[in-house]
Write a protein that binds this DNA or RNA. Sequence first.
DNA 1: GATTTATATAAGCCTATGCTTATGTGACGG
DNA 2: CCGTCACATAAGCATAGGCTTATATAAATC
Lengths: 104, 104
Amino acid sequence: MIENDIFKALADPTRRAIFEKLAAGGMNASALREGIAISQPAMSQHLSVLRGAGLVREERRGRFVNYEVDPEGLALIGHWLAKYRAYWPQRIDALKGLLKEMDQ
Amino acid sequence: MIENDIFKALADPTRRAIFEKLAAGGMNASALREGIAISQPAMSQHLSVLRGAGLVREERRGRFVNYEVDPEGLALIGHWLAKYRAYWPQRIDALKGLLKEMDQ
DNA sequence: GATTTATATAAGCCTATGCTTATGTGACGG
DNA sequence: CCGTCACATAAGCATAGGCTTATATAAATC
């Protein structure tokens, strides 16, 4: 189940940090390591998990691999969350603003 | 970190199943077990994790304990998701509909 | 083509986690 | 009060998951 992959991927704080960093702009695995205390293999493994969850996608560029956020994963979280809209608090301003933007 | 608790709580498929069941209406721990192959202690432990993550809240009723979805946890996921709105696909219809409802 | 550079994969270790069985606690019924 | 019922907690076990070191692959550079 893909939903399972997504939540498992996000359950690790290091992976969320990687994802957050990628959200500020795509970059390769080496650049991603800067500022995060993590070995090269560990980074590679984390990226593999994020990719398997559809949260990140990769693109070979010569001997580098550029990683970027994959909207697919985020959309799935959005759908999961939407199932429980009956329980959403009345004011989620960030989301409200976001939706207005989407309507334009 | 509470964000961490939420994603860890949702990383387990059994806990997501419990949460989903609760979303259809609050009920006590025994009722929750029906239809899910799970022991009484395991259910109790899962509910404890969900509660710690702010996804579920409980209310003593005599010797039963009624559990229900806690909007707090869902709101936190919403906020997390909103941080990455730049990457949301153009059409998340379910969410769009939801937001319109919220505007009324 | 040999070497360096960027990344991936393999294998092993250690901790986290979800389960089990056993027992504790607190509320109701007789 | 004494047993039963609903649930929580404790302790132990077995698997999952994230890390490490070592090695493979694959592209650039010399």
